[in-house]
């Protein structure tokens, strides 16, 4: 029985492999491993929590579950921008922590083969470089692939 389950897990992993959800911040295109992503929701009422890093802009009620929200602009030390109709929250789950990430807008879901991913540049020219795990180039479009775990964990 366990084998079957393991196999199923592997299969789902396989189908998710190489798929990325891309989003935009200031016209820059970032990609997140789709296996971490639970859902995408619109911006909702948030409650600010004092005494935590400013990029965690608050907590939100997601159908009875309280989840913290990280603003990716603040996380990447960019200027805050007024939320608009396109602003979205990408809900990700990393190591049992469920966290929402606020992004300017969602772009698409793309397949990126491992061959098309190159290592991130050694010296990043902005702070987002710290969270990068690779750069994908495809038909002239550059996507910066992010390490979800580092977004949540690194100070």
């Amino acid at each position: 029985m366990n084998e079957i389950v393991a196999q199923e897990i592997q299969e789902t992993e396989n189908t998710l492999r190489g798929k990325y959800l891309t989003f935009l911040l200031d016209e820059q295109c970032f990609g997140l491993d789709i296996e971490y992503i639970l859902e995408i929701i619109g911006v909702q009422n948030m409650t600010r929590v004092p005494k935590i890093p400013p990029y965690i802009i608050g907590i939100m009620n997601l159908r009875g579950k309280v989840i913290p929200i990280i603003d990716m602009r603040l996380r990447f030390r960019k200027a805050l921008r007024e939320y608009d109709a396109k602003t979205c929250i990408v809900v990700v789950e990393v190591d049992e922590d469920v966290v929402g990430l606020v992004v300017d807008s969602i772009d698409e879901v793309v397949d990126i083969a491992d061959d098309n991913i190159s290592a991130p540049p050694g010296a990043a020219n902005d702070y987002s470089g710290n969270f990068m795990k690779g750069v994908a180039q495809d038909k002239g479009k550059v996507r910066l692939l992010l390490d979800c775990r580092r977004i949540l964990r690194d100070g």
Partner: peptide, 12 residues
């Protein structure tokens, strides 16, 4: 409700 475990490192 407890605060999300993600925030537990901040000694709230």
């Amino acid at each position: 409700k407890p605060l999300p475990s993600y925030l537990s490192s901040y000694d709230l």
